[in-house]
Design a protein around this nucleic acid. Structure first.
Ligand SMILES: [Mn+2]
Ligand SMILES: [Mn+2]
Ligand SMILES: [Mn+2]
Ligand SMILES: [Mn+2]
Lengths: 224, 224
DNA sequence: CCAGAAAATTAGTTACCCCTAAAACAAGAT
DNA sequence: ATCTTGTTTTAGGGGTAACTAATTTTCTGG
């Protein structure tokens, strides 16, 4: 059913999927930034994806791409690999949550469907990875997950940490040092307009923390 | 210390190492056969390996290659990855011994040194993989291992199965069906000249098995 | 020693995936 | 409507790693 795509193609599909979730469409520059390649390289690859049989993206010159149904299926397959692997690395090999992403990013392209199936069973068909991202099911449905960004909360709001974006290991270490890890619950105790700083009191912690928007935009929560 | 080489280079080094063990030198055609590429492709790669800084092989036109010290170190690093992975897949994920080789062949190129270290610890610094091949140590020494080929034994010889070559999953299934798995002990009860067939009585088994040279040459034993 | 066979190399292509530099385009500001 | 800026595409090129076909070298048997 799979393993027809190169590592590069898989990384592009994954990136386009991700960008489409927040922006509806993925632009050349956005993709280039995420993948750390030149915009010209993205244009080249985009054309290959659009010209594939069947096409994996729908491409309109100068206005970016969206995934076709085929492209979306391929992307979600890889995301399932990635997130299952992240949990597996943490649970079975004792990785910390800031280490799992980079390792999974390489493994995701080479494991077999058999490997995928085996770790899914060992882990008991989990629904979320260590960062709280939903793990697509075997038939590629996305489990329910938090979409409310912490930056939108205001003083006296209470809630639970559900997801943290996983791209920056340093941020992840900072957050776990302060107890900001799913499923910690918290109360917002302060807000500064203009700079958007939020003060967060994590339940069971002495010290409150002040978080800038750079950080609060990377965190998704469930409001009580 | 590593991860400077492409997947292709790593596969060539591994293959050359393996061929050198039995043939002293690796010829273009032998490498081509193992890696399933055209001889012309091997010539091309060999030149790159010989021209690398530092050189990874010593190349004499028309008479194959041997690994340099640098090439050997790189090869053994990958072989350590490969064999640790094989054991890990069997022990932790329940793979059967005919399934581990193919999966490890892809994973070996992408795991980090950290991953290597973690599975080595989980497995208790093992010395042999499921097929009985020695697993190079952290400092790349090769643990002792059987080098006597079953095909050299004769009737009334007794011994223990120690290693089986791992390239053919079908053969591996056949062998485990007949109890020919390290560390089974056995007695040779028959030998046919000309075709080299051996009859083997595995201890604790009802039926003796007749094995052709195609098979007995893939099996290494320790004689009593 | 030499002819034919086998092995290896060279020559010429191709696909993939990246790059830089230059040109073209889109869209908001004037 | 035009300018300007930022975005995107085109053009041209490089490294890797494979291929086929043609040629050269080595080996081997008579
Ligand atoms: Mn991740
Ligand atoms: Mn990746
Ligand atoms: Mn193996
Ligand atoms: Mn390999």
């Amino acid at each position: 059913m799979r393993d027809q795509f190169t590592h590069a193609i898989e990384d592009y599909l994954k990136t386009i999927y991700d960008l489409s979730l927040t922006h509806g469409r993925a632009s050349t520059t956005q993709i280039a930034e995420v993948l750390n390649v030149a915009p010209a390289s993205v244009t080249g690859m985009i054309k290959r994806l659009a010209g594939a049989k069947p096409p994996l993206v729908e491409y309109q010159k100068h206005r970016g791409v969206v995934l076709t149904q085929d492209g979306k299926i391929a992307a979600i397959e890889i995301i399932r690999h990635h997130r299952l692997l992240e949990l597996f690395l943490q649970e079975t090999l004792g990785y910390s949550w800031d280490e799992v992403h980079a390792e999974a990013d390489r493994l995701e392209h080479v494991i077999s469907e058999d490997f995928e199936e085996r770790i899914a069973r060992v882990l008991g068909d989990p629904t979320h990875n260590p960062h709280g991202d939903p793990i697509p099911t075997r038939d590629l449905e996305i489990p329910p997950h938090a979409t409310l960004c912490l930056s939108h909360l205001r003083p006296n709001d209470r809630g639970t940490i559900r997801r943290v974006r996983d791209t920056d290991p340093e941020l992840l270490r900072f957050l776990s040092d302060h107890g900001i890890v799913p499923p910690a619950s918290f109360t917002v105790t302060g807000y500064t307009p203009f700079d958007g700083n939020l003060t967060l009191q994590i339940n069971g912690r002495d010290q409150a923390v002040v978080l800038g928007m750079r950080i609060t935009q990377q965190i998704y929560v469930e409001r009580e």
